[in-house]
Amino acid sequence: MELHFLGTGAGMPSKERNTSAIAMKLLEERGTIWLFDCGEATQHQILHTTIKPRKIEKIFITHLHGDHVFGLPGLLSSRSFLGGEDTLTVYGPKGLQSWVEATLALTGTHLTYPIAYVEVTEGIVFEDEQFIVHAKLLAHVIPCFGYRIEQKPLLGELLMEKALALGVPKGPLLGKLKQGQDIVLETGEIIYSTDVTAPAKDGFVVTILGDTKYCDNAIRLAERADIVVHEATFDAETTHLAASYGHATNIEAATVAQKANAKNLILNHISARFLAHDITKLLQQARVVFPATYIASDGAQFELKGKELL
């Protein structure tokens, strides 16, 4: 799994940072990409990457402020021109579907693929055999959701030598054991998968939070997560402004990660008031509270290998 930050700015684009968009690359896990938010010019940012829009399977919108959604109609349109045929599922707050459909209709935009809309409420918004996604309301000036993406436990490694020693022939039966199925040999002997596979491994947990001031739901979503992505629109010197605008400081984001016992914190949604020379200070302040803190820039990629952040 890899997080590719396409836009890390707050409010409006700047020369250094585009508006909000994060691609979660699940190419090894399911051959697709999930997108979280789609600010203005997200598709232009994608042009500078290896991301193929037709590979985008799901788009999760945190809230309906323009810096998180103004790029969505354009991306949906371009996905048709770029070979998109598979269903795209779009998750977001009430009102998202009507806005997108009205925009596409008024502009005469024809799509070559169907869109499935899911109106997000608190709870489980998606689940299959691989993943489960939880959503909770955060504390912003309009309804805004944070998402917790949990990969379900991975099947344990097949203990090949042990299986062969028990008389399992090479071939399809080994595959069944690896998939957790018990088998019967020609002799009538039953070989149990649990006897010839290592214990299941925990999958990863990634929490991606939308705009929010410091709140308990952010901590709940981030509990023991391998990666927490949290906004840091303000800093320690502007704490008095953060809550009134429905935003958080770098210190508050670090506190969320610390209280949640998370493993890594990535700060984004950085205000244009912070220039390049301010970023080091932002990072240093946060690391006093939570040492495993990083700040994303546009184009930054963070890969999770096993449980290690690269």
Rank of each mutant, 00 (worst) to 15 (best):
E2W: 00
G9T: 12
G11W: 08
P13E: 08
P13Y: 10
P13H: 09
A23G: 04
M24A: 01
R30G: 07
L35H: 05
D37A: 10
G39R: 07
E40F: 13
K55F: 07
E57C: 02
H65P: 11
H68F: 06
G71E: 00
P73C: 02
S77K: 12
S77G: 06
G83R: 08
E85F: 03
T87P: 03
L88W: 00
L88E: 01
V90L: 08
Y91H: 06
Y91C: 02
K94Q: 15
E101D: 07
L106R: 14
T109I: 12
L111W: 01
T112V: 01
Y113K: 04
A116E: 15
A116Q: 14
E119Y: 01
E122V: 02
G123D: 04
V125R: 00
V133S: 00
V141E: 13
V141M: 07
P143R: 12
I149Q: 02
E150F: 03
L154M: 14
G156N: 02
G156H: 04
E157Y: 10
E157V: 10
G167K: 01
V168K: 07
V168T: 05
P172H: 08
L173W: 07
L174V: 01
G175E: 10
Q181M: 12
T187P: 13
Y192I: 06
P199D: 11
A200C: 14
D202A: 14
V205P: 11
V206R: 06
G210E: 00
D211F: 11
D211M: 13
Y214L: 11
A222N: 10
E223S: 10
I227F: 00
E231V: 07
A232I: 07
D235K: 09
T249M: 04
E252P: 04
A253C: 11
A253Y: 03
T255F: 09
T255G: 12
K259V: 13
N268C: 10
L275P: 02
D278E: 15
I279C: 06
K281S: 14
K281I: 12
L282S: 05
L283F: 05
V288S: 08
T293D: 01
A296L: 05
S297A: 11
K307Q: 14
